[in-house]
Nucleic acid binder design. Structure first.
Length: 482
RNA sequence: CGGGGCGUAGCGCAGCCUGGUUAGCGCACUUGACUGGGGGUCAAGGGGCCGGAGGUUCAAAUCCUCUCGCCCCGACCA
């Protein structure tokens, strides 16, 4: 096709990083804010994706008994310092407000990098009895982490996310919550984003600052690197003790609560882009595509413009009634221009309606990933379109999963391991690791590959650490990561 | 923060080394006509304090200093 020559997107094979930025620009998702370091402006088409993500996740959170609330953006600096590991983890990347109302503040505020501390403070006031537990709260918010190096959606100084914070009467219940939310993230990633993920436990060095255990979902991007797409933390009683969040149990004894926190961010959009998109631009799963069907009227010299427009409008209405989001693109551009634009914006399908179609009682349809157009009779058009979208959603997931499987390998020797990660290369590698921080650090140092997680669903397979030779029970997942 | 690259019209770039009157090109934009099934054609237009601040000079997009931002590679991280 002639698409390649007309494309304004750097091919993946030529420069993957540039491709990623080109897709975002051509897809009209976002742009660097420039006037605010490391920040981005999420444009309407990008924000529409986020809104769809929010809606789906929010429903899942509510179905599992969580309630939304909102806590202050500014956190007293002393709060951050109450949990020792938490301070160490976040101090380097805090933005601090020292002045307000024209005066220097007695105590500076930090702009929240995450809200465990301020929420801990309020949990302390809200929780008195075991009858107040579990307390299941979620917050949709913006947070700020002053990162050294930023990339749109994947790592920006300010980003949007949701953070769940829960308090429980015992550790078992908290652990259950941690797993429940991890699995919800995995389900969302696979069913909505069509992005297959590996659920696993983080090693100590990758753990959230202040957590007993961190679990994550890890997705593979098209360049073989891993993206940590969501995390769920078992905070134990660490924050409970730091903020003195206690309750009286049935026996009248005072205990510290057991807490969890879990979050996903606008980074998911970066994952969406790098999972499905191609050299022609965005490819979006129908469930998250702001526009599922782009309707393009085709006008000719002697045709009745109104007749064509009204036929397009009618189809749009029908689709809308079916819950399918369609736009009728009546702008005064040539059809070819619109084709490219909607392809770059990731619309899963487009239909064209011109004079010849009206005569034949049909439309021309083309899926985002297809080369050829196919005629579709107007009879039960909605049904056919819905069926196509459903199939497309499944196909994207299968395609991504196949790609991941093809780039996944078991490795038993360190020489082979180093070879796989040579240069900028990355894949998903399952290998045996002896569980020591030293081995983990050595591998990272020498290959840039890290342990993404200790997979939960990986079968036991006794073996020997590829470095130390020590006996192990199962393989862990290695990859370079974003 | 270390190494590298780059800021000139909305986007992509040339000009800078070797200073010189009105700062160019492609795409995009505006108006009109012809067009319209894969990024149309022709014609006429609009848009720049050359990222910012200082300095050198008769003269700065160009040379010097500082600064801000972006991109790439590291270290840190959702």
């Amino acid at each position: 096709m002639s698409q390649q020559s007309a494309s304004r997107i750097t091919p993946r094979a030529e420069d993957y990083s540039r491709w990623y930025l080109d897709v975002i620009r051509q897809g009209d998702l976002a742009e660097p804010a420039e006037v605010v370091k490391g920040a981005m402006v999420i444009k309407p088409h990008g924000f529409a994706i986020w809104e769809k993500i929010q809606r789906a996740l929010d429903d899942m959170f509510k179905e599992t008994g969580h309630q939304n609330a909102y806590f202050p953006l500014l956190i007293p600096e002393s709060f951050i310092k109450k949990e020792a590991e938490h301070v160490d983890g976040f101090s380097p990347e805090l933005a601090v407000v020292t002045h307000a109302g024209g005066k220097e503040l007695e105590e500076p505020y930090v702009i929240r990098p995450t809200s465990e501390t301020i929420i801990g403070h309020f949990f302390q006031r809200w929780i008195e009895s075991y009858r107040d537990l579990p307390l299941l709260i979620n917050q949709w918010a913006n947070v700020m982490r002053w990162e050294l190096r930023t990339r749109m959606f994947l790592r920006t100084s300010e980003f949007l996310w949701q953070e769940g914070h829960t308090a429980h009467a015992n550790h078992a219940e908290a652990k259950e919550e941690v797993q429940r939310m991890l699995r919800i993230y995995a389900r969302f990633a696979e069913e909505w984003m069509a992005m297959p993920v590996i659920c696993g436990e983080k090693t100590a060095s990758e753990r959230f600052a202040g957590a007993l255990e961190t679990y994550s979902i890890e997705a593979m991007m098209q360049d073989g690197k891993a993206l940590q797409a969501g995390t769920s933390h078992d905070l134990g009683q660490n924050f409970g003790k730091a903020f003195d969040v206690t309750f009286q149990n049935e026996k009248g004894e005072s205990e510290h609560v057991w807490q969890t926190s879990w979050g996903v961010s606008t980074r998911l959009i970066g994952g969406l882009i790098m999972t499905h998109s191609d050299d022609n631009g965005l490819v979006l799963p129908p469930k998250l595509a702001p526009v599922q069907v782009a309707i393009i009227p085709i006008l000719a010299k002697n045709c009745d413009e109104n007749q064509i427009f009204s036929a397009c409008d009618k189809i749009q209405e029908e689709l809308k009634a079916e819950g399918i989001s369609a736009v009728c693109d009546k702008r005064d551009y040539k059809p070819g221009y619109k084709y490219h634009e909607w392809e770059q914006k990731g619309a899963p399908m487009r239909i064209e309606i011109g004079p010849r179609d009206l005569e034949k009682n049909q439309v021309m349809m083309k899926g985002r990933l297809e080369q050829e157009k196919t005629p579709l009779s107007m009879d039960n058009l909605r049904g056919k379109i819905q069926a196509y979208l459903d199939k497309y959603q499944t196909m994207l997931f299968e395609r991504a999963k196949t790609r991941r499987e093809e780039s996944t390998i078991n490795i038993d020797t360190y020489d082979e391991f180093k070879n796989v990660f040579a240069g900028q290369n990355s894949r998903f590698v399952y290998a045996h690791w002896d569980g020591s921080a030293e081995t983990e650090a050595k591998i990272k140092e020498e290959t840039k590959a890290t342990i993404r997680c200790i997979p939960l669903d990986q079968p036991e397979e006794p073996g020997h650490c590829m470095i130390s030779g020590a006996p192990t029970k199962k393989r862990v997942l290695f990859a370079k990561s974003y």
